[in-house]
Design a protein around this nucleic acid. Structure first.
Lengths: 128, 128
DNA sequence: AGGACTGTATGCATATTATCATACACGAGG
DNA sequence: CCTCGTGTATGATAATATGCATACAGTCCT
């Protein structure tokens, strides 16, 4: 079950939706082929405009994370764009360094963050 | 050393600055009384408008996190609003989720990123 | 055929975000 | 006094985000 909620933080609503869906997909809590909430449904649930949800979904489709089928609904993409091994590990390294940098900037132990990431992915993976 | 990054994520720049400074203060990586980068300095560093930095600093002052002294600079407040343990772990959680989100956006397994982070920090020595 | 549910599209209004440019005001120190 | 480095302020402009209303168009089911 995809649980999205929005807050008035100054972060644009469509960004909150986009990132939460992205995170759910990346963590495996929604699987490829699974149907996402319809734009209207999500708009009603979040008390948000239809176009705002559309904005989020559009960006998700452009990154290949989801597939939008007219009149049928939106679904998690079957094969999220993958890279070859070299690019993959290079990307992993870059992301790891970026995350460490972010943690340092926040005055947080990167180890704690890494462990929290493992916990999160495990927890969300177990709920499938 | 306060290190602020801004990224073109859809998240407003002033929000990114505000939150990163807030986290740095709450985590104690910048201490009460310490001088923050001047608005102009930060604006130049981030290649961002002076008013944008001001927006971030203004909100920080309104929450009591920093003190702005005209013609003298900006400083971390003596008694900044403190984060309790719950908020602390919430911050770690938020960073972890952000990292997972980044990994998802890159089509990379978050677990791999977490492992890479642990490797990197181990190599650099424990950061606690 | 027709209804119900989907995504798609538009126009209008408003608020927010961000940049650029140009000042003014205050404090410290030479 | 003067200059330099601060924060403060304003106006113009553009892009973005959001909401509201109103449709249109394709798919599925009965």
């Amino acid at each position: 079950m995809l649980q999205v909620h929005v807050v008035n933080n100054g972060v644009p609503i469509y960004v909150q939706i986009r990132d939460q869906v992205l995170r759910a997909i990346g963590a495996g809590s929604v699987r490829p082929g699974a149907q996402l909430p319809t734009m209207r449904q999500l708009a009603v649930d979040l008390k948000v405009d239809l176009n705002t949800v559309r904005h989020a979904y559009d960006e998700l489709e452009q990154t290949g994370a989801i597939v939008i089928l007219r009149a049928r609904g939106t679904y998690v993409a079957q094969n999220p764009p993958r890279m070859d091994a070299a690019q993959q590990s290079q990307r992993v390294q870059a992301l790891a360094e970026q995350a460490i940098s972010l943690a340092a900037a926040a005055g947080v132990d990167a180890v704690d963050v890494a462990q929290a990431m493992l916990q999160l992915t495990k927890r969300q993976g177990a709920r499938r």
